[in-house]
Amino acid sequence: MEVERRQNISFWIATELLAEEGCIVETANDGVACVDMIEKADADYYKMILMDIQMPAMNGLDAAAIRNLDRKDAEFVPIIAMSANAFAEDIINCKLAGMNMHLSKLLDETK
């Protein structure tokens, strides 16, 4: 339960920081829902995707396959990984999955 609580804190911090900057934040509870949201959205609707790596139903590495959707924006929308897994191998796997950047949890709003 402690890990889940810390993940929720990181989620809350990220959501609040983005909202304070004027971003409209939409969330998905798992990777399947994330891919579904992207597929149903108008082209260029999403400007950035923060992708948790450890999600139910479909993990973030698999969900990053949105890069292969048949739509022009899928190739270019920035995907930023958020994960407590911050070893070099984890960061490499995120890049190989098509993600642009890796942020380690717990997020620190001062960074």
Score class of each variant (00 low, 15 high):
I49K: 00
A63W: 02
I13V: 15
M1C: 07
L61S: 02
A64K: 00
Y46P: 03
T15N: 10
D36L: 06
Y46I: 03
M58C: 04
A14G: 06
D90N: 08
A97V: 03
I9F: 10
M37T: 08
K72F: 08
S10T: 13
K47C: 11
A33V: 10
V32Y: 09
A97K: 01
M58P: 00
L17R: 10
D62C: 01
A86I: 09
A19K: 15
E16Q: 15
S10H: 08
E26T: 14
A57S: 12
I66R: 00
W12E: 14
D70H: 10
P56M: 05
Y45A: 12
G60A: 06
A81T: 09
A33G: 09
Q7L: 14
V35R: 13
D108L: 03
M1Q: 09
A33Q: 13
R71S: 04
C23W: 15
R71E: 02
S83F: 00
M51V: 07
M99Q: 05
D108Y: 06
L61I: 08
M55E: 09
A84K: 01
M1E: 09
A28F: 07
A41R: 02
N93D: 10
M58K: 10
G22T: 08
S10A: 12
D30H: 11
K40V: 08
L50D: 01
A63Y: 01
A19R: 14
D36K: 13
A33L: 09
M1Y: 06
K105Q: 04
I53G: 01
L69N: 07
A84R: 02
R5A: 13
E21G: 13
R6F: 13
V35T: 12
M101C: 15
L96V: 07
L17S: 08
R6M: 15
L61E: 02
R6N: 15
C34W: 00
L107C: 02
A19Q: 15
A97Q: 03
E89F: 07
K72S: 12
A57Q: 11
A43E: 15
R5E: 14
G60L: 03
D70E: 14
D42T: 07
D108S: 04
N100W: 02
N93C: 05
T27D: 09
L96C: 06
G98M: 04
K111Y: 12
E39P: 07
V77S: 01
G31E: 05
D44F: 12
N8F: 08
A43D: 15
M101T: 15
M58G: 01
K105S: 03
E26L: 14
D70A: 13
L103A: 10
D90I: 06
I13S: 06
C23D: 11
E89G: 07
D90E: 04
E26P: 05
E39A: 15
E21R: 13
A63E: 02
I79L: 09
R6Q: 15
A86R: 00
T110C: 03
C94R: 05
R67E: 04
D90A: 05
L69F: 14
E89Q: 14
N85H: 11
A64V: 02
Y45W: 10
A19G: 08
I53Y: 02
A65Y: 06
N93K: 11
M101I: 12
M51F: 07
N93S: 11
Y45M: 11
